[in-house]
Design a protein around this nucleic acid. Structure first.
Length: 576
RNA sequence: CGGGGCGUGGCGCAGUCUGGUAGCGCACCUGCUUUGGGAGCAGGGUGUCGGAGGUUCAAAUCCUCUCGCCCCGACCA
C-alpha cells in the first residue's frame, strides 16, 4: 500500500475527550473516528486490524469444528418474549417498532435467534453436536459508553452457540471452546488469563471470562499464586478455611447490653465510639430484590458482594435499600439497622457464624447493641458466602496466597444448559426416541475490544506497538529523500520485493520530512520499519528497526527482502 | 437516572465574570528556502461562537428553553 494514496489521518495532539490510552491512540493513529456517543467508524488501518483478529478467530473456530453463519441484527420482540428476556433485559436492549407497528429490537446477542433456527432444523441426536458462530455487529444501549470502542454501544462481536445431546457433550463443547480461545488470544499476542465468572443476564450455570491483563481494565480479578485458580472479583469465592473469628468460640456468652450512640452510624464511627475493632461488629444491610425485602449480615470489616447475594437468593435483581425503605424495615434511620426483631428474611455471611458477643444496630435511632449472639438474640435463615474477597484471604482451591489485578474482558464462555432450549422448545429425540431439550453453550469475543486491549497492553510514549498478528501492516518502508532517485529506486525495489513475497507492507511515499514519517510510523505502531536514506544508500545499506526495540540494524540493500522476511517470521513466533 | 464539566475554524484552546471590530497555537492553501526525528520566511483561506427564543442601540458574553459530548456514581456479555 502506498501511504500517499491511502488514508491514515493522524493527530499530533491528544484528543480532549479520550480518557484511556488505547482510545487516545486509536484516534491519534487514525484507526477510528467517533460518529456519536459509543458509536465509531473504523478507518482503513483500524479495519485492517479488526480483519486480522477476525481471521484468527475464524481459523481457530473452524479448527475447533464450529460452523460460520450470519444472523440478522434486527430481531422480533416475540422471540424475546418467548425466552422471557424482553422484560428482563432492561433498557440496554434497544427496542423500536416497524411501519406495521410490530415490535423489534437490535440484537445485543443472539441466543434467541440461533435457538429458533435450531429448533426448526435440528430434531435428532444424530445432528449433534453442532456449533454455529458468526462475526457480527451487535448493539447494546449502554448507560454510559466510554473508553472508545472498549465499551461502545455498537460493536463487533464473534458469538458461537453449541448444541449437545447431554451434559457430557456440552462439557466437551465447552472445553473445545476454552482451548480455541486460549489459542486465539495467544495468537493475538496478548497477555491474558481465563477467570471464573458470574453468568449475568445471559444466565446459565458456569462460565469463564478471558481477561487481558491491564491496569486500566474495568474488571478486578483475583488469582492464586500457587495454583491456577483465577476469578472475577464478583465471582471469587471465599475459602472454607475461613480465618478464625477474632472472638473465641468457647468464650462465655455475655448478657445483651444497650448503648446510646447518638449520631454514630458508619462502621468507622461505631468502632471509634466504642473503641472496638471492626471485626467484632456485624453490619446489617437491607436489600430490595425483584421479589422481596431481605437483610444481609456481614462482619464489620467485610464488604458485601451483591452478585453473590443475588445468586444466593435466586433473585433477578438486588438493590441496596434507600433511607425510606430502611426506616420502614428496621424502624430506625439508616445507620442503626440490626438483625434483632426484623420481620424479613435474614441471610448471613459465613464469617458471621463463628462470632460471639458482637455489636449490631439497635433498630432505633441512636441505639446500638453489645454482646449480641446468634441463636439467643436472633436467627438467620442460612449462612452463605456473601462477601467480597479481600487482601489476606486465601485461595478457595488450595489455600495459597491470592493476588489482585485488573483486566479487560475480551471473551466470555458460558455453559447455558437448557435455559433457552426449554423456553423456546428446542427439543430433539434421543437414541431411545425420547424427547429432550438440547443442552447449549455460548461463547463470545469482543473483536474491537480485543484490538483496544492489545493497544492498552502494547504501547509506549510514542504510540502503539502492535503485535504483528493483528497489526494493520507488517512492515513499513520510509524513503527519507523523495527527490533522490537512488533512494526512491531502492525503496521501490524493496517495496515490490516484499509485496511479491506476500508481506503486508506500507510505503510512506508522502512528500514529508523525515521526522514526520518517523513519528507517524511510531504512532501507528507498525511492527517493522525499513528506513531508506541517502546516507545508507551510499554505503549500500538500509536500516531495519522493530517498533518494540530501541536499536536499528543495518542490512545490505541486496539482502534486505530476506532480512525483513526473517524478522517478520521471528515476530510471529513471539508476538507478545 | 443523580452529581459535575464542556460546546468558539479540521484539532487543542483563550475570550464569557465586567455586552461594543472573534483571537492564539497546530493543521490547511500558494511561493521561496530547507530536507535522518513533527522545518523557516512571506502571503492566504477558514467560523451560522451547538441550536431556538428573549433582553438590548448592540449578545460568543446576560436570561429562558433545548440538543450534543465528556467525567464521577448507580448499571452492565
Amino acid at each position: 500500500m502506498r501511504l500517499s494514496r491511502y488514508f491514515i489521518p493522524t493527530y499530533k495532539e491528544v484528543p480532549a475527550d479520550a480518557e484511556v490510552v488505547s482510545h487516545q491512540l486509536m484516534l491519534r493513529a487514525g484507526l477510528i473516528r467517533k460518529l456519536t456517543s459509543g458509536i465509531y467508524t473504523y478507518l482503513p488501518a483500524g479495519l485492517r486490524a479488526i480483519r486480522k483478529v477476525e481471521q484468527i478467530i475464524r481459523e481457530e473456530m473452524n479448527r475447533a469444528g464450529a460452523i460460520e453463519v450470519l444472523m440478522p441484527a434486527v430481531q422480533p420482540a416475540e422471540l424475546w418474549r418467548e425466552s422471557g428476556r424482553w422484560d428482563y433485559y432492561g433498557r440496554e436492549l434497544l427496542r423500536f417498532k416497524d411501519r406495521h407497528n410490530r415490535e423489534a429490537c437490535l440484537g445485543p446477542t443472539h441466543e434467541e435467534v440461533i435457538t429458533d433456527l435450531v429448533r426448526r432444523e435440528i430434531h435428532s441426536y444424530k445432528q449433534m453436536p453442532v456449533n454455529f458462530y458468526q462475526i457480527q455487529t451487535k448493539f447494546r444501549d449502554e448507560i454510559r459508553p466510554r473508553f472508545g470502542v472498549m465499551r461502545g454501544r455498537e460493536f463487533i462481536m464473534k458469538d458461537a452457540y453449541s448444541f449437545d445431546v447431554d451434559e457430557d457433550g456440552a462439557e466437551r463443547s465447552y472445553k473445545a471452546m476454552y482451548e480455541a480461545y486460549e489459542r486465539i488470544f495467544q495468537r493475538c499476542g496478548l497477555r491474558f488469563r481465563a477467570v471464573e465468572a458470574d453468568t449475568g443476564t445471559i444466565g446459565g450455570s458456569y462460565s469463564h471470562e478471558y481477561m487481558v491483563l491491564a491496569e486500566t481494565g474495568e474488571d478486578e480479578i483475583v488469582s492464586c499464586s500457587a495454583c491456577d485458580y483465577a476469578a472475577n472479583l464478583e465471582k471469587a469465592e471465599i475459602g472454607d478455611r475461613e480465618a478464625p473469628a477474632s472472638t473465641d468460640n468457647a468464650a462465655e456468652i455475655f448478657p445483651l447490653e444497650e448503648v446510646e450512640t447518638p449520631d454514630v452510624k458508619s462502621v468507622e464511627e461505631v468502632t471509634a465510639f466504642l473503641s472496638i475493632p471492626p471485626e467484632t461488629l456485624v453490619k446489617t444491610l437491607i436489600y430490595r430484590t425483584d421479589k422481596e425485602i431481605v437483610a444481609a449480615l456481614v462482619r464489620g470489616d467485610h464488604e458485601l458482594n451483591e452478585v453473590k447475594l443475588k445468586n444466593a437468593l435466586g433473585a433477578q435483581t438486588v438493590e441496596l435499600a434507600d433511607s425510606r425503605l430502611v426506616e420502614e424495615t428496621t424502624g430506625a434511620p439508616m445507620g442503626f439497622a440490626g438483625p434483632m426483631g426484623l420481620k424479613v428474611r435474614i441471610l448471613a455471611d459465613r464469617a458471621v457464624r463463628g462470632m460471639r458477643n458482637f455489636v449490631t444496630g439497635g433498630n432505633r435511632k441512636d441505639l446500638h447493641l453489645k454482646n449480641v449472639n446468634l441463636g439467643r438474640d436472633f436467627d438467620v435463615e442460612r449462612f452463605e458466602d456473601l462477601r467480597v474477597v479481600a487482601p489476606g484471604d486465601v485461595c478457595p482451591r488450595c489455600g495459597g496466597p491470592i493476588r489482585f489485578g485488573r483486566g479487560i474482558e475480551v471473551g466470555h464462555i458460558f455453559k447455558l444448559g437448557t435455559k433457552y432450549s426449554e423456553a423456546l422448545r428446542a427439543l430433539f429425540l434421543d437414541r431411545n426416541g425420547k424427547e429432550k431439550p438440547i443442552v447449549m453453550g455460548c461463547y463470545g469475543i469482543g473483536v474491537g475490544r480485543t484490538v483496544a486491549a492489545a493497544i492498552e497492553q502494547n504501547h509506549d510514549e510514542k504510540g502503539i506497538i502492535f503485535p504483528i498478528p493483528i497489526a494493520p501492516f507488517e512492515a513499513t518502508i520510509l524513503p527519507l529523500q523523495m527527490n533522490d532517485a537512488r533512494v526512491m529506486e531502492a525503496a521501490e525495489t524493496l517495496y515490490g520485493g516484499l509485496m511479491e513475497r506476500g508481506v503486508d507492507v506500507l510505503i510512506d511515499d508522502r512528500d514529508e520530512r523525515a521526522g514526520v514519517k518517523f513519528n507517524d510510523a511510531d504512532l501507528t505502531g507498525i511492527p517493522l520499519r525499513v528506513t531508506v536514506g541517502r546516507k545508507g544508500i551510499e554505503k549500500g545499506i538500509v536500516e531495519i528497526k522493530l517498533r518494540r526495540d530501541t536499536q536499528s540494524v543495518e542490512v545490505p540493500l541486496q539482502g534486505a527482502v530476506d532480512a525483513v522476511l526473517e524478522r517478520i517470521k521471528a515476530l510471529y513466533d513471539s508476538p507478545a
